[in-house]
Structure formats: structure tokens, C-alpha cells
């Protein structure tokens, strides 16, 4: 991979984390292609080839519906997220600009009156499309290590 592409990729991963942490859902949606896949899945299911996921969204329409759900319908304790995302590991790069890459993440959750706690730990497994216009997510799997989700999972990871 060319160094400037790696720089773009790194910027993309960090920007994703920043947009999610800022709850900038329009910017989050813009990072996905129309035919995208976004899943938040327990490592146990992933490693045993069990298809169940905590969230399994298979179109941009579903992502929009999720955002409607978390902003308008789901009742939950207010909280902030803070993501720490490692630099990406490139797994493969095809001639038509599809990059397969992964990065580890840690998400801290802070509730009102609360102390930051480790909320979700895992890795992104990604297929990204690199074009002149920028990078878009074809698919992002958030494979988390936590055996138990701490009560609920509302916002995207």
C-alpha cells in the first residue's frame, strides 16, 4: 500500500471514532456505502460461525432506521462513548480499490454522575472502498470480546 493511502486509511479510522464519540450520526451514515453491512457481534458467535449478532444491519436504510431508533424510540440511560482505535492492519488490497483491514478498539462508557468504565473491547473487521472521493465502508464487523454486554448497547460502536 502506498504511504499516502495508508495515511488516508488511518485518518478514516480516527475520524470514524471521532464522529461516533461526537454522536454525529449524519457523518457516521455518510461513511457507509448504500449496500453496506454493519454488525456488532460477540466473538463467540463469530468464531463458531453462528450468524446471530447483537446488531445485524445489512443496508444503509437499516442504519438510518437504527439512528432513528436510538435518537427517537429507545429509552436508555444517557451516556457518552470514547473510542480508542489502534492503527489499522492491512490484510489485503485489490486492484479495484477494495481494502481488507482490521483495527482493535476499546470503548469507554461514561454515564451521568458516573466514572468511565470499559464498555466494549474488540476489533473491527473491515472491507473498505478507496476511491478518488475518499473511503467508504462496504462492511464493518465489530467483533467484541466481552462475554456480557453491560446491560444494553444503544449507540453504534
Amino acid at each position: 500500500m502506498k504511504a499516502d493511502n495508508y495515511l488516508k486509511l488511518t485518518q478514516f479510522y480516527q475520524n470514524y471514532a471521532a464522529m461516533v464519540d461526537q454522536e454525529n450520526w449524519d457523518a457516521w451514515l455518510d461513511m457507509f456505502s448504500e449496500d453496506c453491512v454493519y454488525k456488532v457481534q460477540a466473538r463467540e458467535n463469530y468464531e463458531r460461525n453462528l450468524p446471530m449478532a447483537a446488531l445485524s444491519l445489512t443496508s444503509k436504510g437499516m442504519l438510518k432506521d437504527r439512528i432513528y431508533g436510538i435518537t427517537e424510540t429507545i429509552f436508555h440511560d444517557p451516556y457518552h462513548q470514547l473510542h480508542l482505535v489502534s492503527s489499522p492492519l492491512i490484510l489485503s488490497e485489490s486492484d479495484d480499490g477494495i481494502i481488507e483491514s482490521q483495527a482493535n478498539y476499546t470503548v469507554f462508557r461514561t454515564k451521568n454522575n458516573g466514572i468511565a468504565e470499559v464498555y466494549n473491547v474488540g476489533r473491527y473487521l473491515d472491507h473498505l472502498r478507496l476511491t478518488e472521493q475518499g473511503i467508504q465502508i462496504k462492511s464493518r464487523l465489530c467483533i467484541f470480546d466481552n462475554e456480557m454486554i453491560l446491560n444494553s448497547l444503544i449507540y453504534p460502536i
Binding site: 446471530m52 447483537a54 446488531l55 445485524s56 444494553s152 448497547l153 444503544i154
Partner: peptide
């Protein structure tokens, strides 16, 4: 697909745990 409604992240179950 319908399982998205249920479980800890579900549209109609996340709020039960809360």
C-alpha cells in the same frame, strides 16, 4: 433480521434491561 428487535441492542428489548 427480526432479531435486531431483541437482545441487549434490540429496538424493543434494550429498554427492558434499562
Amino acid at each position: 433480521r427480526q432479531a435486531n428487535l431483541f437482545g441487549p441492542a434490540g429496538f424493543v428489548s434494550a429498554d427492558d434491561g434499562e
